[in-house]
Simulated scan of single mutants.
Amino acid sequence: MKIIADSNIPFVSECFSSIGEVQTAPGRQMSPEMLKDAQVLLVRSVTKVGPGLLEASDVKFAATATIGVDHIDQQWLEQKNIGFASAPGSNANSVAEYITAAMLKIAGKQGKKLSDCSIGIIGVGNVGSRVEKKAISLDMKVVLNDPPLARKTADPKYRPLEEALGCDFVTIHTPLTRDGQDPTYHMADREFFSKIKPGAVFMNTARGAVMETAAVENAVKEAKISGLVLDVWENEPDISMEMLKLADIATPHIAGYSFDGKVAGMIMIYDACCRHFGIEPSRKTADFLPRASVPFIDAAELTGDEQSRIEAAVSRVYDIMNDDSELRKITEQDAGQRPVYFDMLRKNYPVRREFTNTKVKGANKGLARKLSGIGFQVE
């Protein structure tokens, strides 16, 4: 069995070699010629999967090691009887940790206490629900907006969009859809920002096209929002330099790039591939995870008020500003090389472990509760 895989999926060769011959390639360089005699295709979000890529191939199973599937023509795959799998929830905790790190940084910069702030979560699936739990652990008021879930469950906890926009932080965690009852393409447009709470912080880690670039830029310039956190961009990898300049925290679509999340996604599609072909899986997540880079933190070494101590603990495991500073170096590149640089940051992203791999010792009861709530082990 020949398997073509995105080289940005960690350990994909080591894992999938148990069921076939693996060849890797950059996701944006995959071509029909490359897939002509392949039976399995494994991608991430940068590869468009549909008839243009697979019509002339012998592919029987395709998978994406991501939670998003807007790059996959699932209807066409089904018509051609090609098996398909994605990795829903695999990197959800990684994104939620990113949002937590971003809020702590912004709150510190603006002199705000998160316990006095509210957060509007638009989209309450795998990612949004985890953001909700971490925000509640930080004693934030949470407003949830998810029209499909509201219709499905009739649960009054799902509130109108206007209520979510009335919060101090507004974060989007929806899929990118262009039709249906709840299209999200350019959801964050001029009207969206005309209703947002003055001085709110806007965060997008979903898909770049969920927001309208010009509308976001105007919201910053017109001081409708006081903070901007962006991990996703329209027209990736050719991102707006103006938007980059205006953002408080800017990163190259890596919110879900924790090593734990990447490996979990890889194992999910490996298991699905094995099921499709009737093969017994011989690999598991633990086979590929290294030791934690920060196994212990002594709470006595964390200084300042409670929020500052939480931010310090988070930064030891994941300093979001390192990702921000690396992306800002894109301005030093020639215009034609900026998309290449953006992709290079994603391809060569350093190992980032999730909070659950780190134990905090000696925290008082209040601090321990909050650290545990956002994912740390507490002794």
Rank of each mutant, 00 (worst) to 15 (best):
K2Q: 10
K2W: 03
F11L: 14
F11K: 15
A25R: 13
G27M: 10
Q29E: 14
Q29A: 12
M34S: 11
Q39N: 13
K60M: 10
T64K: 01
I67D: 08
G68D: 00
G68P: 01
I72F: 02
D73Y: 02
D73H: 00
Q79W: 03
K80R: 15
I82P: 01
S86Q: 00
A87G: 12
A87K: 01
P88Q: 14
V95S: 09
A102W: 03
K105G: 11
L114N: 13
C117M: 11
S118A: 13
S118V: 04
I119Y: 02
G120I: 13
V124I: 00
S129C: 10
E132L: 06
E132H: 09
A135I: 01
K141A: 10
D146F: 00
P147Y: 04
P148D: 01
D155I: 00
K157N: 01
P160T: 13
L161R: 11
E163F: 01
A164T: 03
L165P: 09
D168R: 12
F169P: 04
T171A: 01
T171S: 12
H173I: 01
T174R: 02
Q181L: 13
P183T: 07
M187W: 03
R190S: 13
F192W: 04
S194Y: 05
P198I: 10
G199C: 08
T205S: 07
T205M: 07
G208W: 00
V216Y: 06
A219V: 00
E222P: 05
K224L: 11
L228F: 03
L230G: 10
D231V: 02
V232T: 10
E234L: 09
L244D: 02
K245S: 14
I254K: 08
Y257W: 08
Y257V: 11
V263L: 07
I267N: 03
I267S: 01
I269F: 05
D271S: 15
T285L: 11
L289Y: 06
R291T: 13
R291N: 14
P295R: 15
D298A: 14
D298Q: 08
T303P: 03
G304K: 13
A312R: 06
V314F: 06
D319V: 12
I320Y: 02
M321F: 09
D324A: 11
K329V: 05
T331M: 08
E332L: 05
E332I: 07
Q333P: 05
Y341P: 04
Y341M: 04
M344R: 14
Y349N: 09
V351I: 15
R352N: 08
T356E: 09
N357E: 15
N357K: 07
N357R: 12
V360T: 14
N364A: 07
N364I: 05
K370Y: 00
